[in-house]
Design a protein around this nucleic acid. Structure first.
Lengths: 202, 202
DNA sequence: GTCTATATTTGGATAGAC
DNA sequence: GTCTATCCAAATATAGAC
């Protein structure tokens, strides 16, 4: 039969995590405070320890949520190849960049390592490693296998994303360069120049 | 005549800043602690306030030092055009990437905004703005004037640098892609494909 | 200029009653 | 499970003696 107590506990954990996301989105990832978090959910700080054994356990649960959302979100790694590798690459990078800019705090937790003393648990890390493997497999399908090319692609992806988040939050100044950047990259690694149509709107 | 007291004061300020750099390089930019800083220079914490009016004033002095070093370091903006725009672009980006990876804490202070509550003073900020203007002027000399192209170039520069710092500290996994990335970019914006020689060593 | 002493705030975490 | 009460550590900053 249903374990109503366990269900209630899970619901409270989820509520605490949701409040934690709200807090880091507004004050920054590093500014998570158990004091404020407890107040947000109507508890006293010690009560949080009934649900998470430490502050880092909360970060770890958030990391796992973010990794799962990344797995669910990335259209690129799920949709079948369209027969147009460049179009697939552009769609995949648009999806990645959108995922990152939609929630900079989530991006920071998942892809940057700025929380002093926090390391994701092996289980949480396995989730994100799985997503990266899936991406590499998909890139291989469209002929991108050289590790140096993949490194260049990741630099482009994080560079566009970081600039967008840091210098034009909420806008699209760098997001709108994604198609052009992917055309540049694709024709560089395949040895052909981009046609004006492929470069996308300027 | 010389003001020996002022000289001594400046020397102590410099000594404090040097200890501060040592601390942030080892523990992270955000981990600067007045307590540890005072201990490192053989003072009690309150004595630091004779030299800097606040912790943010120390960050600001560090920011000004970093901006000045950036101005002094960037070969690209000082050397005369060589007549080979791509070679100039590659040399300039190599210089930028090297400057950033040489001291990640300095890079973080100067180009990222991760210290909660710290904003550089107008005087300090003017130093870094000056450096950016000089770069834009130099890019114009080699024919790069489209703001979208400049945005793409900055995304490449920060992406390569961030990946290098985050994922291969002390190595050259992304640094060695700089020449190739600049060839890719240059020929994309000038409409010609890169020759194998221009792409540099793979 | 430097110190002692202290104020104040904030943080994570624990003990034990209920 | 939640609370009160408390602990401990660390942080920035100020007052005032020397």
């Amino acid at each position: 039969m249903r374990d109503r107590r366990a269900e209630r506990r899970e619901a409270t954990r989820a509520e605490i995590l949701e409040a934690a996301w709200t807090q880091v989105r507004s004050d920054g990832l590093a500014a998570l405070s158990l004091r404020d978090l407890a107040a947000a959910v109507g508890m006293r700080p010690p009560s949080l320890y009934s649900y998470f054994e430490s502050k880092n356990a909360i970060y770890d649960a958030m990391f796992a949520q973010a990794a799962q959302q990344f797995l669910d979100d990335q259209v690129f790694t799920e949709a079948p190849p369209s027969g147009d590798p460049l179009a697939d690459l552009q769609a995949g990078m648009r999806s990645f960049a959108r995922f990152c800019t939609d929630d900079p705090a989530r991006y920071q937790l998942l892809f940057q390592r700025t929380i002093p003393g926090f390391e994701p648990s092996p289980e949480s890390f396995a989730l994100s490693a799985h997503a990266l493997e899936r991406t590499a497999r998909r890139l291989a399908e469209i002929g991108i296998t050289d590790p140096a090319d993949i490194d260049l692609l990741t630099a482009l992806g994080t560079g566009l994303t970081d600039q967008q988040i840091s210098n034009d939050p909420g806008g699209d100044r760098w997001l709108r360069l994604v198609d052009d950047a992917m055309a540049m990259f694709f024709h560089h690694v395949s040895g052909r120049p981009a046609t004006p149509a492929e470069r996308g709107p300027q």
